[in-house]
């Protein structure tokens, strides 16, 4: 099991979210549900920006309580602002190797290689402002690729892109995952995204994350809460 949520609950004011399930290594899991339901909160918990109030959160069998975000085997892509605007593409990716950016020659080459893998070959000297929205998220993907953490968390990083571009990005993520063997947790509000990339899907609504089910099965016969959301 790569990720275990053991009778875990977090409370923030009136809001609370509970989950009690586990995910096998290599799974691609979509988290779907209404906005404000707690999808992003769950990812923030796993990334270590919050701690659960009850229960345990284990990654690779290790209890993550008290482990700082930087020490967790996790990469998270936000919806936006994944890049520092005053650093070049190369530097933004290089931060994934060394936050002080003192890169050795072979590390520079590794940065170039990961840029190549996301289709941004030769763009290392550009600044984020010179890139399109899709290209910016590719840079963030290149950094996640370089960090090579076993758990990749996507907080709707492609939501602002058009349908064709979004499908292209999801296919890119799928290819990269196939190579690295990392596990994916992806927040989305569109069942088509889930169908495209995720073998498992979990519903986040009414303060609960349901245990993951095979995506095709879930969408073919949605439970009441999901039916209400899908309309």
């Amino acid at each position: 099991m790569i990720l275990q949520l053991d009778k875990m609950t977090i409370r923030q004011g009136d809001f609370s979210l509970s989950a009690d399930w586990a995910v096998k290594r290599g799974t691609r899991l979509a988290l779907i549900g209404p906005s404000g339901g707690g999808k992003s909160t769950l990812l923030s918990l796993i990334a270590g920006f919050f701690e659960p109030d009850e229960g345990r959160l284990l990654i690779e069998g290790r209890d993550m309580r008290g482990v700082a975000p930087g020490k967790r085997p996790v990469s998270l892509l936000f919806q936006e602002n994944n890049l520092f605007p005053h650093l070049s593409v190369l530097q933004n990716v290089g931060l994934g190797i060394r936050p002080d950016l003192r890169l050795a020659r072979e590390q520079h080459l590794a940065v170039e290689r990961s840029l190549q893998e996301v289709g941004l070959e030769g763009m290392g000297d550009r600044m984020p402002a010179q890139l399109s929205g899709g290209q910016r998220q590719r840079v963030a993907l290149a950094r996640a690729l370089l960090r090579d953490k076993p758990l990749l968390l996507l907080d709707e990083p492609f939501a602002a892109l058009g349908p064709a571009l979004r499908a292209e990005m999801l296919d890119l993520v799928a290819r990269l995952l196939a190579r690295t063997g990392a596990t994916l947790l992806m927040v989305t509000h569109d069942p088509r995204d889930a169908e495209r990339i995720a073998d498992q899907t979990a519903l986040v609504s009414d303060g609960r994350v349901t245990p993951p089910m095979p995506t095709a099965e879930l969408l073919a016969d949605p439970p009441a809460a999901l039916r209400a959301y899908l309309g």
Partner: peptide
């Protein structure tokens, strides 16, 4: 948050 995740 990114800085925290990158262990800066």
């Amino acid at each position: 948050l990114l800085a925290a995740q990158l262990g800066m």
